[in-house]
Design a binder for these strands. Structure first.
Lengths: 130, 130
DNA sequence: CTGGTTGGTTTCCAAATGGATACTCAGTTT
DNA sequence: AAACTGAGTATCCATTTGGAAACCAACCAG
């Protein structure tokens, strides 16, 4: 037993919980998940809702979410093709923690912006003075 | 009023709540925050706890967290120098949503890994069959 | 005056990420 | 026969990120 399951320590860079933090940080992934919260959405709709991401990048995002079992891809045998994406149960269960984070963000981003402004002004004035 | 404050919509890529999701996704930032949860930690300690990140990268991480008002840098006038980092109130308030996410991760990463394995095996067999 | 200590900085480089643009595929309509 | 769908691919390229290795600064101990 080399790989003992040591209560999943996030501090370990090899800890698998890192994969979740990476997903969240992905530029489009968490957006897609939140868009899918209200039911299935088609590829082209997704492109619009998520503000004109290029098809390549959207496909990449969707594929990796699908690979991780967070969304499901449904293809309808039609021409022109129709494909839509839904959250799996796993994906659905991620919505709660994601909302927590989003709520925090919406409440506290002004504070972050202020902190940035203050920080940057301080650096600027330090530069002038030497 | 071009920029109406439309209840901070995460779907808008210019929405400032994106900055939070970026921070989370940063390879070291959320680790550092969780390490600092139990009180101030020195630079060199951080390097060890976070598993030998190079000093350059750690400094970058710390600086951006400081700029965002999430941590505070304290310098003690000593030789050899002593510097430690603490969470600000803002940083502390981020711990709750972060823990939610971490908990979700620790519970569900096995499912993600399984999904990945299944997905990859499927692709492999498809390749063989053509 | 040499070496040790802590907390960095500098330079350089490889890999990953994101995006612009053009193209494909398979039928369907005109 | 040409044009039109929707859902992608294929190429190519710019930017960003992360890291390795070496260096620096201040002071103290020997």
């Amino acid at each position: 037993m080399e790989t003992n399951q040591q209560a999943a320590n996030v501090l370990d860079p090899d800890c698998p919980s890192r994969v979740v933090f990476q997903r969240i940080g992905d530029k489009w992934a968490s957006l897609v998940i939140q868009v899918l919260a209200n039911g299935p959405v088609r590829f082209s709709e997704l492109r619009k809702m998520v503000h004109v991401v290029t098809p390549k990048v959207l496909t990449q995002t969707l594929r990796s979410l699908e690979r991780d079992g967070l969304i499901r891809r449904k293809v309808y045998a039609q021409v022109p093709p129709r494909v839509d994406y839904t959250l799996t149960d796993l994906g659905l269960s991620l919505l709660a923690p994601l909302s927590q984070l989003r709520e925090w963000a919406e409440n506290n981003v002004p504070a972050i912006i202020d902190a940035r402004d203050a920080y940057d002004e301080l650096r600027d004035s330090e530069l002038l003075e030497g």
